[in-house]
């Protein structure tokens, strides 16, 4: 295990050095090692091998073909390339429809309920919209209670079903209540599920169908929560959830740790799904709109 003990020490250095290294790297003489280190930096941010290779190749090509040179120019161009990739599609959430129906899905533990709680608070307290939350996670122990506490904090409407009730029926009830009361937004929580569980994914698709039957354009927004610490599996998550419920945007959660959430870049690049919201902490105001440029800069600094 001697090798790994050495590795442990080298890693500690890596983390501290890596960020400044990217910048420094681009200011040095450009050779294979430079590009390799740049690759490693992006890999380290969970951008993934494929997207990383393309970005670095592009930058390398521009250096040879367009005579791009100088550390600052290279570094700026890198951020630009990353921003272009991250900036796909519509990254705002439209609230024109009344009620606007937002369906929230994702793998277990990615932060769905917390995201919904914060989103409800923003919509209600800052944008002055009337909101109804639907406790569609009828599976996990105490998930309904968790959402109910959030509804209380945000001062918004709350609809729940019987324990183990069909989540489709909860969604149905919530949309009905919202229409009856003239609410502006309905946000539907769903149980966390692995994208590989076909029966649970089919259940999710059914929730979506139930909503569409009530309001043909709905859900107007289908958000997928992705934990920023997630590695390459995030791509599979986005792909499969999209197949079942046509995901319109990501919520990239838990960006307040050391994880960079580079997987969102791979998802934007390969699947064209934009990030719409980011979660950067426990506080209510820590749910924020996504800014592609800021995200790109953070990836490499």
């Amino acid at each position: 295990m001697g090798r790994f003990r050495r590795l442990r020490e080298s890693l500690r250095k890596t983390r501290q050095a890596l960020q400044s290294e990217i910048q420094a790297t681009l200011f040095e003489e450009l050779n294979d090692e430079t590009w390799e280190r740049l690759e490693e930096a992006l890999i380290y941010a969970d951008v993934g091998a494929r997207t990383t290779a393309q970005v670095v190749e592009q930058l390398e090509r521009e250096v040879t073909e367009n005579g791009l040179s100088g550390g600052q120019a290279l570094s700026d161009r890198l951020v630009e390339l990353l921003t272009e990739i991250a900036d796909v599609g519509e990254n705002r959430i439209e609230l024109l429809a009344k009620p606007t129906v937002i369906l929230v899905a994702g793998v277990n533990g990615t932060g769905k309920t917390t995201t919904i709680g914060k989103l409800a608070w923003h919509l209600s307290r800052e944008l002055d919209r009337s909101v109804v939350l639907a406790a569609g996670d009828t599976f996990r122990a105490a998930a309904v209670e968790q959402l109910e506490l959030w509804a209380g904090r945000a001062g918004v409407g709350f609809v729940k079903g019987q324990p183990q009730a069909d989540p489709g029926s909860v969604a149905y009830d919530a949309v009905s209540v919202a229409r009856r009361d003239g609410a502006d937004v309905v946000i539907i929580d769903t149980a966390g599920r692995l994208h590989t569980q076909d029966d649970l994914m089919a259940e999710l698709a059914k929730v979506r169908r139930v909503i569409s039957k009530q309001i043909p354009d709905a859900p107007h927004e289908t958000l997928l929560t992705i934990d920023a610490t997630t590695g390459q599996n995030g791509l599979r998550q986005a792909q499969l959830f999209s197949e079942f419920v046509a995901v319109t945007g990501l919520v990239l959660t838990k960006l307040d740790g050391t994880a960079k959430g580079g997987i969102a870049l791979a998802i934007a690049h390969e699947l064209g799904i934009p990030v719409k919201l980011i979660g950067v902490g426990e506080q209510l105001e820590d749910l924020r709109p996504f800014d592609a440029g800021e995200f790109a800069r953070a990836l490499i600094t």
């Binding site: 442990r8 380290y44 969970d46 533990g109 934990d227 610490t229 997630t230 590695g231």
Partner: peptide, 14 residues
């Protein structure tokens, strides 16, 4: 530890 964790797993563990 979540099996889906990416590169950051080492920071967390350390």
């Amino acid at each position: 530890v979540d099996a889906m964790t990416g590169q950051d797993a080492v920071n967390v563990a350390e």
